[in-house]
Each structure stands twice: as C-alpha cells, then as structure tokens.
Simulated scan of single mutants.
Amino acid sequence: MEHKGVTVWFTGLSGAGKTTISQKVAEELRSQNYKLEVLDGDIVRTNLTKGLGFSKEDRDENIRRIGFVSHLLTRNGVIVIVSAISPYRAIRDEVGKRIGNFVEVYVNAPLETCEKRDVKGLYKRARAGEIKQFTGIDDPYEPPLNPEIECHTDKEELEESVKKVLEGLKKLGYLA
C-alpha cells in the first residue's frame, strides 16, 4: 500500500504501556498491508545502541540514533513505530523536527500504576538502590507539552488506546 512515511513515537515511563499499545497498532497496520518497521527501545539497546549507559548524554545519543534510523525509513515511505521511554523533552523535540513527519504519542500512566505493573522488577530494584539513574525514581521524565496523541493507560482499555492512535493517524493524514 502506498502511503506517506511517518514516525509514530511512543514515549512514557517504564510500564506505562508503550510496547503493548505499539505492538497492537503495528499488528493492525500490518493486517492492512502498510509498510512499517518497529523500533522498540529494549531491542534497539541490545543492537543499535549497545554500550551506551544511562547518563543524560548516553540517553540523548540513544534517542538520536533511533531518530536517525527512523528518519531514513520515514523519508522512504515507511511507517516507523518507536517505543522508547525517551525521558527528555528537548531531545524528543530535536528528533521530531529532524524527521518532519513525526507523531508523538504520550503513553501516560501515573508512577504508582507503572510500579504496580513492574513485570521486570525494575522499579523495585531502583527503589532498593540496585539500579541508578532510573527514570521516574532518581532520574526525571519530562512529559510532552503538546503530544499529538495521549493515551491514559490507567483509565483506558488497550483497545481504546489503540483506536485513539489509529484514529489520530487517520486525522493527521497518515492513514487512508
């Protein structure tokens, strides 16, 4: 299917639901034969950005690299779905400007909700001091000021959030 390339950037705290929503959006778009790639933060860190730590500089470099790949794909007509905490507003804005066709999806869930969903035990380890510079605990998360789409995963069912993203992409002219 011919369509405009776009990067759909899911940002939010660990456990907010970024990967869950983005996977369902990807499934739906694949079923409609859209060209797309998924860049999940955890997978990218083990391949493209291996060796980077969690300092602000390393986090920014991680996002720049994801943004670079996203830009290449987007300009070639691919829908790129990125799921990455990307805690700092300035670097998200920088990457969004470079890409151009960029839709920021804020997956919004309170810290308490994310901690309850903590399947990997990361929050528990961060609270115990075993993980330093953990976003939301001892490192900040800067929410988007004007995201194109916002999902409140503590109040919405998964299907509602997925529908909100797909309808938002249609409204913005990226989907037929």
Rank of each mutant, 00 (worst) to 15 (best):
K124C: 06
E115W: 03
A26D: 04
T11L: 02
G100L: 03
T11C: 05
Q23N: 13
S161N: 09
R45T: 12
K132F: 00
N101H: 09
K4W: 02
D58F: 05
L172R: 10
K164R: 15
D60S: 09
S70W: 04
T113L: 04
V6H: 00
E28D: 10
T74P: 01
L111H: 04
F10I: 09
E148M: 03
T7H: 00
G41N: 13
V80C: 00
L145R: 14
I66E: 02
T19G: 04
R45S: 08
G17A: 01
P147E: 03
V165P: 13
T113C: 06
D40T: 09
A126Y: 08
A90V: 13
K50F: 12
L169E: 10
S86G: 06
Y88G: 02
K132E: 02
S86W: 06
T135G: 07
L36Y: 04
Q32W: 01
P147V: 05
R92G: 11
A84K: 12
S86R: 13
L48A: 05
D118Y: 09
E28S: 11
I81G: 00
L122P: 07
L172W: 13
E28G: 03
I99F: 06
Y174Q: 14
V105I: 02
T7S: 02
L158W: 14
V78M: 13
Y141S: 08
D154Q: 05
K50R: 14
D118T: 12
I81W: 00
K170E: 07
I43N: 13
I79F: 00
Y141M: 15
S161W: 09
T19N: 01
L73S: 00
G67F: 13
V38H: 08
H71S: 10
E61H: 07
H3V: 01
K171D: 08
T46V: 12
V69W: 01
G41L: 15
L122D: 03
F68S: 07
V162S: 09
F68A: 11
E115A: 02
F102E: 03
K97A: 15
R98I: 13
K18V: 14
G121L: 10
D42T: 14
S22I: 03
S22R: 11
L172Q: 07
E142T: 01
V119P: 12
N62Q: 08
G96V: 04
P140T: 08
T19P: 05
G15C: 07
E2V: 03
I63H: 09
A26I: 05
N146P: 01
A109V: 02
Y174G: 05
A26F: 00
K124D: 06
K155L: 12
I85M: 09
K155H: 10
A16G: 05
E115V: 10
V107Q: 02
D154L: 02
W9F: 06
L39H: 10
L13W: 04
V38Y: 00
A90R: 14
I99P: 11
V105S: 02
R75F: 04
S55E: 01
I85D: 10
E104T: 00
P143C: 06
Y123P: 15
S55M: 09
D138A: 01
I91N: 08
D93E: 13
S83D: 04
R98P: 06
F54A: 04
K155E: 08
